[in-house]
Amino acid sequence: MNKYMIYLNTKRCIGCHGCEIHCKANKKLPFGAILCEIDHEPLVSIKGVPKTEFSFRSCYQCDDPYCASICPTQAISKREDGIVLVDEEKCIGCMACAGACPWGVPQLNQEKNKMVKCDFCVDRVDIGLKPVCVTKCTTQALRFVTLTRF
């Protein structure tokens, strides 16, 4: 079972797209690749105020990742704590994973010709820090949640 998830408090989110850039800047990603996305529904008027709900999507770190099973070089693996990781050494940049993932999450890093995807900032998580998007969210709307089994 996955140990972590990223939760968006949509009441606090202001759709500023900061998280997207925090992530890109941290991973030094070139033009094109984007690992998380903020989106919202079309506005509807509720009690005279046009409103919408924001959504945050990175990688679902699936239980049985489609991206991993299709990868011809077995570059994608799932850790004990649920985080789905790509091994850049093994990745050949074929991007079969992007086609297999229902949400098109895997991105091509054009500079390296390697796949890149959200890894919950595993390097930070492993030293007790929170993912970048969570740490730097403009309004502290994102939370990194450790799931507990009941």
Binding site: C16, H17, G18, E20, I21, H22, K24, A25, N26, T135, K136, C137, T138, T139, Q140
Partner: peptide, 23 residues
């Protein structure tokens, strides 16, 4: 290698433009 809102005053929070300073 890292840029964030001052933890003592902003708890790390920064906007998109702030992070894009690296570019």
């Amino acid at each position: 290698v890292w840029l964030e809102g001052n933890p003592y005053l902003l708890g790390g929070a920064l906007c998109a433009k702030g992070s894009a300073g690296t570019a």
